[in-house]
Design a protein around this nucleic acid. Structure first.
Lengths: 140, 140
DNA sequence: TAGTATAGTTTACATTTGTAAACTATACAA
DNA sequence: TTGTATAGTTTACAAATGTAAACTATACTA
Protein backbone atom coordinates (compact mmCIF):
# COMPACT_ATOMS: atom_id res chain seq x y z
CA UNK A 1 0.00 0.00 0.00
CA UNK A 2 2.83 2.37 -0.86
CA UNK A 3 1.46 5.86 -1.26
CA UNK A 4 1.84 6.88 -4.86
CA UNK A 5 3.33 10.29 -5.39
CA UNK A 6 3.13 12.77 -8.23
CA UNK A 7 6.47 13.83 -9.65
CA UNK A 8 7.19 17.37 -10.80
CA UNK A 9 6.70 16.69 -14.49
CA UNK A 10 3.57 14.72 -13.78
CA UNK A 11 2.23 17.63 -11.77
CA UNK A 12 2.40 19.85 -14.84
CA UNK A 13 0.39 17.34 -16.80
CA UNK A 14 -2.17 16.97 -14.08
CA UNK A 15 -2.68 20.72 -13.98
CA UNK A 16 -3.61 20.66 -17.62
CA UNK A 17 -6.10 17.89 -17.16
CA UNK A 18 -7.59 19.58 -14.13
CA UNK A 19 -7.96 22.76 -16.06
CA UNK A 20 -9.25 21.37 -19.33
CA UNK A 21 -11.46 18.91 -17.56
CA UNK A 22 -12.19 15.78 -19.54
CA UNK A 23 -9.76 15.90 -22.46
CA UNK A 24 -7.88 13.92 -25.05
CA UNK A 25 -4.20 13.14 -25.34
CA UNK A 26 -3.96 15.55 -28.23
CA UNK A 27 -5.43 18.42 -26.25
CA UNK A 28 -3.02 17.81 -23.41
CA UNK A 29 -0.08 17.67 -25.77
CA UNK A 30 -1.02 20.81 -27.64
CA UNK A 31 -1.65 22.74 -24.46
CA UNK A 32 1.56 21.64 -22.80
CA UNK A 33 3.68 22.28 -25.85
CA UNK A 34 2.52 25.83 -25.66
CA UNK A 35 4.56 26.26 -22.53
CA UNK A 36 7.22 23.56 -22.68
CA UNK A 37 9.28 21.83 -25.30
CA UNK A 38 8.39 18.33 -24.33
CA UNK A 39 8.01 15.92 -27.21
CA UNK A 40 4.74 14.13 -27.84
CA UNK A 41 6.19 10.86 -26.52
CA UNK A 42 7.26 12.48 -23.32
CA UNK A 43 3.79 13.70 -22.59
CA UNK A 44 2.28 10.36 -23.53
CA UNK A 45 4.64 8.67 -21.10
CA UNK A 46 3.62 11.03 -18.35
CA UNK A 47 -0.06 10.49 -19.04
CA UNK A 48 0.49 6.75 -18.96
CA UNK A 49 2.28 6.93 -15.65
CA UNK A 50 -0.48 9.05 -14.16
CA UNK A 51 -2.99 6.42 -15.25
CA UNK A 52 -0.85 3.65 -13.76
CA UNK A 53 -0.67 5.56 -10.53
CA UNK A 54 -4.41 6.07 -10.72
CA UNK A 55 -4.39 9.82 -10.66
CA UNK A 56 -6.13 9.71 -14.02
CA UNK A 57 -8.76 7.44 -15.50
CA UNK A 58 -9.65 7.07 -19.12
CA UNK A 59 -12.60 6.52 -21.34
CA UNK A 60 -12.08 5.21 -24.83
CA UNK A 61 -13.84 6.29 -27.99
CA UNK A 62 -12.57 4.46 -30.99
CA UNK A 63 -8.87 4.23 -30.44
CA UNK A 64 -8.66 7.46 -28.53
CA UNK A 65 -8.49 8.09 -24.84
CA UNK A 66 -10.19 10.76 -22.87
CA UNK A 67 -8.68 11.47 -19.49
CA UNK A 68 -10.35 12.46 -16.27
CA UNK A 69 -8.60 13.45 -13.10
CA UNK A 70 -9.40 11.16 -10.21
CA UNK A 71 -8.38 13.59 -7.52
CA UNK A 72 -9.64 17.10 -7.13
CA UNK A 73 -7.06 19.79 -7.77
CA UNK A 74 -7.66 21.76 -4.61
CA UNK A 75 -7.53 18.60 -2.54
CA UNK A 76 -4.30 17.53 -4.16
CA UNK A 77 -2.75 20.94 -3.57
CA UNK A 78 -3.79 20.95 0.05
CA UNK A 79 -2.50 17.47 0.67
CA UNK A 80 0.78 18.20 -1.02
CA UNK A 81 1.20 21.32 1.08
CA UNK A 82 0.30 19.63 4.34
CA UNK A 83 2.69 16.78 3.59
CA UNK A 84 5.46 19.20 2.86
CA UNK A 85 4.86 21.07 6.07
CA UNK A 86 5.00 17.81 7.98
CA UNK A 87 8.67 17.61 7.08
CA UNK A 88 9.35 21.02 8.54
CA UNK A 89 10.29 21.97 12.05
CA UNK A 90 6.98 22.62 13.81
CA UNK A 91 8.32 25.65 15.56
CA UNK A 92 9.21 27.41 12.33
CA UNK A 93 6.14 26.62 10.27
CA UNK A 94 4.36 29.80 11.27
CA UNK A 95 7.14 31.88 9.84
CA UNK A 96 6.95 29.99 6.58
CA UNK A 97 3.24 30.69 6.39
CA UNK A 98 3.94 34.34 6.98
CA UNK A 99 6.44 34.28 4.15
CA UNK A 100 3.90 32.68 1.85
CA UNK A 101 1.26 35.24 2.69
CA UNK A 102 3.80 37.94 1.96
CA UNK A 103 5.01 36.45 -1.31
CA UNK A 104 1.98 35.00 -2.98
CA UNK A 105 -0.57 36.86 -4.97
CA UNK A 106 -3.80 36.50 -3.01
CA UNK A 107 -7.28 37.81 -3.51
CA UNK A 108 -8.87 40.17 -1.04
CA UNK A 109 -11.51 37.66 -0.10
CA UNK A 110 -8.95 34.95 0.62
CA UNK A 111 -6.96 37.40 2.72
CA UNK A 112 -10.06 38.29 4.62
CA UNK A 113 -10.77 34.65 5.28
CA UNK A 114 -7.22 34.21 6.46
CA UNK A 115 -7.47 37.20 8.72
CA UNK A 116 -10.65 35.93 10.30
CA UNK A 117 -9.37 32.40 10.64
CA UNK A 118 -6.13 33.51 12.23
CA UNK A 119 -8.07 35.67 14.63
CA UNK A 120 -10.27 32.82 15.72
CA UNK A 121 -7.48 30.32 15.97
CA UNK A 122 -5.35 32.73 17.96
CA UNK A 123 -7.86 32.67 20.76
CA UNK A 124 -7.16 29.06 21.60
CA UNK A 125 -3.61 28.80 20.31
CA UNK A 126 -0.71 27.76 22.52
CA UNK A 127 1.76 30.40 23.61
CA UNK A 128 4.44 28.56 21.68
CA UNK A 129 4.98 25.50 19.54
CA UNK A 130 7.97 23.38 20.38
CA UNK A 131 10.58 22.33 17.92
CA UNK A 132 10.15 18.69 16.99
CA UNK A 133 13.42 18.20 15.19
CA UNK A 134 14.96 15.95 17.81
CA UNK A 135 13.44 13.01 19.67
CA UNK A 136 13.87 14.87 22.91
CA UNK A 137 14.45 18.41 22.39
CA UNK A 138 14.24 21.89 21.39
CA UNK A 139 16.28 23.67 18.82
CA UNK A 140 16.93 27.40 19.08
CA UNK B 1 24.16 25.94 -13.07
CA UNK B 2 21.46 23.38 -12.33
CA UNK B 3 19.79 24.23 -9.04
CA UNK B 4 20.62 21.54 -6.55
CA UNK B 5 17.69 20.13 -4.67
CA UNK B 6 17.36 18.41 -1.32
CA UNK B 7 15.69 15.02 -1.43
CA UNK B 8 13.34 13.77 1.25
CA UNK B 9 15.87 11.63 3.07
CA UNK B 10 18.44 14.39 2.83
CA UNK B 11 15.98 16.80 4.37
CA UNK B 12 15.79 14.64 7.50
CA UNK B 13 19.54 14.74 7.83
CA UNK B 14 19.66 18.47 7.32
CA UNK B 15 17.11 18.98 10.05
CA UNK B 16 19.38 17.19 12.47
CA UNK B 17 22.36 19.30 11.53
CA UNK B 18 20.35 22.47 11.75
CA UNK B 19 19.15 21.50 15.17
CA UNK B 20 22.38 20.21 16.62
CA UNK B 21 24.36 22.98 15.03
CA UNK B 22 27.97 22.13 14.33
CA UNK B 23 28.17 18.37 14.85
CA UNK B 24 30.02 15.20 14.00
CA UNK B 25 29.00 12.29 11.85
CA UNK B 26 28.58 10.20 14.96
CA UNK B 27 26.18 12.66 16.54
CA UNK B 28 24.07 12.80 13.41
CA UNK B 29 23.97 9.03 13.17
CA UNK B 30 23.03 8.53 16.80
CA UNK B 31 20.36 11.16 16.68
CA UNK B 32 18.82 9.91 13.48
CA UNK B 33 18.88 6.29 14.55
CA UNK B 34 16.73 7.34 17.44
CA UNK B 35 13.90 7.96 15.05
CA UNK B 36 14.69 5.84 12.01
CA UNK B 37 16.28 2.52 11.27
CA UNK B 38 18.77 3.77 8.76
CA UNK B 39 22.13 2.07 8.88
CA UNK B 40 25.30 4.02 9.57
CA UNK B 41 26.34 3.78 5.91
CA UNK B 42 23.08 5.17 4.74
CA UNK B 43 23.46 8.24 6.86
CA UNK B 44 27.07 8.66 5.83
CA UNK B 45 25.99 8.53 2.20
CA UNK B 46 23.38 11.19 2.78
CA UNK B 47 25.86 13.43 4.59
CA UNK B 48 28.27 12.98 1.72
CA UNK B 49 25.67 13.92 -0.84
CA UNK B 50 24.69 16.99 1.13
CA UNK B 51 28.34 18.05 1.14
CA UNK B 52 28.61 17.42 -2.59
CA UNK B 53 25.52 19.52 -3.14
CA UNK B 54 27.03 22.16 -0.89
CA UNK B 55 24.24 22.26 1.63
CA UNK B 56 26.81 21.27 4.24
CA UNK B 57 30.45 22.17 4.77
CA UNK B 58 32.91 20.37 6.92
CA UNK B 59 35.81 21.05 9.20
CA UNK B 60 38.25 18.28 9.96
CA UNK B 61 39.87 17.48 13.29
CA UNK B 62 42.10 14.46 13.05
CA UNK B 63 40.24 12.14 10.78
CA UNK B 64 36.82 13.32 11.86
CA UNK B 65 34.46 15.70 10.19
CA UNK B 66 32.33 18.32 11.75
CA UNK B 67 29.43 19.50 9.67
CA UNK B 68 27.91 22.92 9.39
CA UNK B 69 24.78 23.78 7.48
CA UNK B 70 25.41 26.29 4.74
CA UNK B 71 21.82 27.41 4.43
CA UNK B 72 19.66 28.65 7.23
CA UNK B 73 16.79 26.37 8.16
CA UNK B 74 14.08 28.99 8.06
CA UNK B 75 15.32 30.23 4.71
CA UNK B 76 15.38 26.74 3.29
CA UNK B 77 11.86 26.07 4.53
CA UNK B 78 10.57 29.29 3.06
CA UNK B 79 12.21 28.69 -0.28
CA UNK B 80 10.93 25.15 -0.46
CA UNK B 81 7.43 26.32 0.32
CA UNK B 82 7.51 29.17 -2.18
CA UNK B 83 8.84 26.85 -4.86
CA UNK B 84 6.11 24.37 -4.19
CA UNK B 85 3.46 27.03 -4.38
CA UNK B 86 4.85 28.16 -7.70
CA UNK B 87 3.72 24.85 -9.13
CA UNK B 88 0.18 25.40 -7.96
CA UNK B 89 -2.68 27.13 -9.70
CA UNK B 90 -2.46 30.76 -8.60
CA UNK B 91 -6.18 31.02 -8.16
CA UNK B 92 -6.33 28.21 -5.65
CA UNK B 93 -3.28 29.05 -3.54
CA UNK B 94 -5.28 31.08 -1.06
CA UNK B 95 -7.42 28.10 -0.22
CA UNK B 96 -4.34 26.00 0.37
CA UNK B 97 -3.01 28.61 2.76
CA UNK B 98 -6.31 28.55 4.58
CA UNK B 99 -6.07 24.79 4.86
CA UNK B 100 -2.57 25.07 6.28
CA UNK B 101 -3.61 27.62 8.84
CA UNK B 102 -6.43 25.31 9.84
CA UNK B 103 -4.31 22.19 10.01
CA UNK B 104 -0.99 23.24 11.42
CA UNK B 105 -0.17 23.78 15.03
CA UNK B 106 0.64 27.48 15.29
CA UNK B 107 1.55 29.73 18.16
CA UNK B 108 -0.65 32.61 19.20
CA UNK B 109 1.96 35.14 18.26
CA UNK B 110 2.40 33.70 14.77
CA UNK B 111 -1.35 33.69 14.32
CA UNK B 112 -1.50 37.29 15.41
CA UNK B 113 1.20 38.19 12.91
CA UNK B 114 -0.73 36.37 10.23
CA UNK B 115 -3.93 38.15 11.15
CA UNK B 116 -2.28 41.52 10.99
CA UNK B 117 -0.44 40.77 7.77
CA UNK B 118 -3.56 39.49 6.06
CA UNK B 119 -5.41 42.57 7.18
CA UNK B 120 -2.80 44.89 5.72
CA UNK B 121 -2.43 42.97 2.51
CA UNK B 122 -6.17 42.78 2.03
CA UNK B 123 -6.28 46.54 1.69
CA UNK B 124 -4.37 46.51 -1.56
CA UNK B 125 -5.24 43.03 -2.78
CA UNK B 126 -6.92 42.38 -6.10
CA UNK B 127 -10.54 41.36 -6.13
CA UNK B 128 -9.52 38.08 -7.64
CA UNK B 129 -6.47 36.17 -8.81
CA UNK B 130 -6.70 34.51 -12.17
CA UNK B 131 -5.97 30.91 -12.83
CA UNK B 132 -2.61 30.52 -14.54
CA UNK B 133 -2.89 26.89 -15.49
CA UNK B 134 -3.21 27.53 -19.19
CA UNK B 135 -1.22 29.85 -21.42
CA UNK B 136 -4.37 31.76 -22.15
CA UNK B 137 -7.04 31.04 -19.81
CA UNK B 138 -9.01 30.52 -16.76
CA UNK B 139 -10.03 27.32 -15.16
CA UNK B 140 -13.24 27.10 -13.11
C1' DT C 1 -8.26 -0.68 -51.60
C1' DA C 2 -3.81 1.10 -50.63
C1' DG C 3 -1.33 4.75 -48.19
C1' DT C 4 -0.63 7.79 -44.70
C1' DA C 5 -1.17 10.33 -40.70
C1' DT C 6 -2.01 9.75 -36.35
C1' DA C 7 -3.06 7.35 -31.43
C1' DG C 8 -1.29 4.45 -28.51
C1' DT C 9 2.56 0.92 -26.80
C1' DT C 10 7.17 -0.63 -25.99
C1' DT C 11 11.67 0.05 -25.20
C1' DA C 12 15.51 2.98 -23.80
C1' DC C 13 18.66 5.33 -21.24
C1' DA C 14 20.85 8.76 -17.98
C1' DT C 15 20.18 10.80 -13.46
C1' DT C 16 18.50 10.99 -8.80
C1' DT C 17 17.14 8.82 -4.73
C1' DG C 18 16.78 5.33 -1.04
C1' DT C 19 19.31 2.07 0.93
C1' DA C 20 23.42 -0.24 2.30
C1' DA C 21 27.55 -3.59 2.10
C1' DA C 22 32.34 -3.78 1.53
C1' DC C 23 36.59 -1.79 1.88
C1' DT C 24 40.47 1.36 3.63
C1' DA C 25 42.79 4.14 6.80
C1' DT C 26 43.90 5.49 11.31
C1' DA C 27 43.65 6.67 16.47
C1' DC C 28 44.06 4.52 20.48
C1' DA C 29 44.23 0.43 23.70
C1' DA C 30 46.71 -3.49 25.37
C1' DT D 1 54.11 -2.57 18.45
C1' DT D 2 50.12 -4.67 17.04
C1' DG D 3 45.33 -5.25 16.96
C1' DT D 4 40.90 -3.40 16.91
C1' DA D 5 37.23 -0.27 16.83
C1' DT D 6 35.89 3.22 14.49
C1' DA D 7 35.71 7.26 10.62
C1' DG D 8 35.51 7.84 6.19
C1' DT D 9 35.42 6.09 0.97
C1' DT D 10 33.94 3.18 -2.77
C1' DT D 11 30.92 0.41 -4.91
C1' DA D 12 26.26 -1.43 -5.52
C1' DC D 13 21.82 -1.86 -6.92
C1' DA D 14 16.70 -1.22 -7.46
C1' DA D 15 13.11 2.15 -8.07
C1' DA D 16 11.61 6.62 -9.59
C1' DT D 17 12.01 10.37 -12.77
C1' DG D 18 12.92 13.12 -16.97
C1' DT D 19 13.14 12.55 -21.49
C1' DA D 20 12.26 10.45 -25.83
C1' DA D 21 12.89 7.22 -30.07
C1' DA D 22 11.04 3.33 -32.23
C1' DC D 23 7.38 0.54 -33.21
C1' DT D 24 2.36 -1.02 -33.97
C1' DA D 25 -2.29 -0.49 -34.96
C1' DT D 26 -5.94 1.84 -37.06
C1' DA D 27 -9.08 5.56 -38.91
C1' DC D 28 -9.60 8.12 -42.69
C1' DT D 29 -7.93 9.87 -47.45
C1' DA D 30 -7.14 9.48 -52.17
Amino acid sequence: MTEKTVSGAEWSVLRIVWTLGSCTTREVIDTLQNESDWKDSTIKTLLKRLCDKEFLTTTKQGRQFTYQAVVNEQTAMNQTAVTMFSHFCAMKQGQTLIELIEQEKLSRSDLQKIEKLAHVRAMTAPEQVDCNCLPDGTCD
